[in-house]
Design a protein around this nucleic acid. Structure first.
Lengths: 152, 152
DNA sequence: GTGCGAATCTGCAAACCGTGCGAACTAGCC
DNA sequence: GGCTAGTTCGCACGGTTTGCAGATTCGCAC
């Protein structure tokens, strides 16, 4: 997702208006790596701008997603999470604390059975496990997937 | 997920009772490749057994998931979908009709950045695109991912 | 600066998905 | 048949998200 001032220009260029509510959300989302839910954003936004409504937060998030500035993630656990990182990447979800990390995957190769006739436009990978904060210290990291050359 | 008669034995072996409602759901789920939602299952179940309640369907699905006979999938689009196929596999989601296909992935190799310190216990891959029914006939299949040797 | 029109915001209601709970029921065992 | 623990049912409720209508405000033209 672009910087708040770039987004402001982009919105204006599309005939969309810039409001204080939108600007606040641009700021809260920019460089936000926590993959917040709409509710979490509303909580922070409301603390800074008590008048803002939940409805506006949802609306703005929807707008940003449809403009391609934000992506929405359904990773289970109820609420949709939002990701301002629009570069091609994947995610790791901590089963314990729910943290979601950005994972960059390179040199992906595999054989697939069942994709015949399916016109795939992309793929999303979600790793499950425990994040560094939640993994017990006496256990080795990545018992299933080591971190140099991965294989499944 | 095992056959209805095997599940019946497994339930009894755990001290769980076998009810007509459960047997009906065992049957509806067995070999069901549509990845139905709880609501979809309720609709079919209710047609065959008008007295059955939504609550019972949810309860039975939860039980089967916790017994490992069923897996639940959050693939966006609201309701959780259920998959009686408990073999290790992945999914392809049709953006157009919402169909979910089972995909078997072999020889998966990749390099990942960001997984350092994350104790991954597994990974799920969801392919997006259009299923054979929804893809326009004049377009080549799998414009992004071809089907012999995949790369991203 | 003023006025106008369209976009936006707000707050409420409601839909959707799923769970908690208590009363009624029943499968399975004696 | 009778008992008991497990199950079902139906309702209420919580969390998430969307629809709607009226009030407000942005952005532009003058």
């Amino acid at each position: 997702m672009r910087r708040p001032d770039e987004l402001t220009r982009a919105f204006r260029a599309q005939g969309l208006k810039i409001t204080p509510q939108r600007q606040l959300l641009f700021t809260l989302l920019h460089d936000n790596e926590t993959h917040p839910t709409a509710e979490a954003l509303y909580t922070v936004a409301h603390a800074q701008m008590p008048g803002i409504s939940r409805r506006t937060v949802y609306q703005t998030l929807t707008d940003l997603v449809s403009m391609g500035e934000l992506s929405s993630l359904a990773v289970g656990g109820g609420a949709t999470r939002f990701d301002p990182n629009t570069a091609a990447h994947h995610h790791a979800l901590c089963d314990e604390c729910g943290a979601l990390l950005d994972i960059y995957v390179d040199d992906l190769q595999f054989r697939a059975q069942g994709l015949e006739g399916f016109a795939a436009s992309g793929a999303t990978i979600v790793f499950n496990g425990r994040c560094a904060t939640c993994v017990p210290n006496d256990l080795p990291n990545n018992p299933v997937i080591n971190n140099k050359e991965h294989q499944q």
